[in-house]
């Protein structure tokens, strides 16, 4: 076995985005390593969501550069980035309410199968749509609900469904925008277990307000303030950081 060398999966250089007179993202240099879980925290309006929107392609930057797996994706539309393996779970749950749970996940699985012939072959060539959907539903514990309409699911289950849809495309980088928002304490605990189960070799970005949750899961934490990066360290380091304490943790 070759020792795993820390490779940069995604990096940004001097990323900027303004809305009118407000600079939402200011000179952000971010670098993610393959397989890490990165928490991004910061007060409301710090630019967290804008930053991940720039990464996923929902927004175009005013200036700067984004490199993913060695490819400059700065000018690429969102759907092309998704095909490279960047998945995004919306802050406001985004599923297919009028379709069954099975069909919801099948839409993701179909994309994975379409892509498999190219740069990212399926681990097992024979995997059918049904099998991919089945394994994603089992992983998220939604197997019982296959034939239900998504709109009929409880809120917490809908959030899980969105995770399942995204897992079906087998992402390399999975961005989760406030995944625990609106979940109960028990549900958050289950969600933490789920993330541990699905991380394997995936890189995950967690945008969160729920600090204990982030500190528990993340390998590294980035703190944003007023569009820029205030600090970046492992969870322990962040909790000790004096600047973070004063501006964000409010101590």
């Amino acid at each position: 076995m070759v020792a795993v060398v820390a490779v940069s999966l995604l990096s940004t250089k001097k990323l900027n985005r303004r809305f009118g007179g407000i600079t939402a993202v200011r000179d952000v240099d971010l670098s993610l390593e393959q397989g890490e879980i990165r928490g991004i925290i910061g007060p409301n309006g710090a630019g967290k969501t804008s930053l991940v929107n720039l990464l996923s392609g929902r927004l175009a930057p005013d200036s700067g550069q984004i490199v993913f797996q060695g490819i400059d994706i700065t000018g690429q539309p969102a759907w092309k980035r998704a095909r490279l393996g960047i998945a995004y779970a919306f802050q406001i749950t985004s599923i297919y309410p009028g379709l069954t749970v099975f069909e919801n996940v099948a839409i993701g699985a179909q994309m994975r199968i379409q892509q498999s012939s190219k740069s990212r072959p399926l681990p097992d060539q024979k995997r059918s749509l049904e099998e991919i959907v089945g394994s994603c539903l089992r992983l998220t514990g939604l197997d019982w609900s296959r034939t239900q309409l998504a709109v009929e699911l409880a809120y917490g289950h809908q959030r899980l469904l969105e995770i399942a849809i995204n897992l079906a495309v087998d992402p390399v980088l999975f961005i989760l925008d406030e995944p625990t928002q609106g979940l109960s304490v028990d549900e958050i605990e289950e969600f933490t277990d789920l993330l541990k189960r699905i991380r394997s070799n995936r890189t995950i970005i967690l945008i969160e307000h729920n600090l204990p949750f982030v500190m528990n899961l993340a390998d590294r934490v980035t703190v944003m303030d007023q569009g820029g990066i205030l600090a970046e360290n492992d969870p322990k380091g962040i909790q000790m950081d004096a600047r973070v304490k004063t501006t964000y943790l409010g101590e």
């Binding site: 996923s56 969102a78 759907w79 998704a82 998945a87 995004y88 985004s94 297919y96 994309m111 892509q115």
Partner: peptide
Amino acid sequence: ENESRTRMLGYNT
């Protein structure tokens, strides 16, 4: 049913 979700899954909508 949901165009933006579909786009974010990699489909050229």
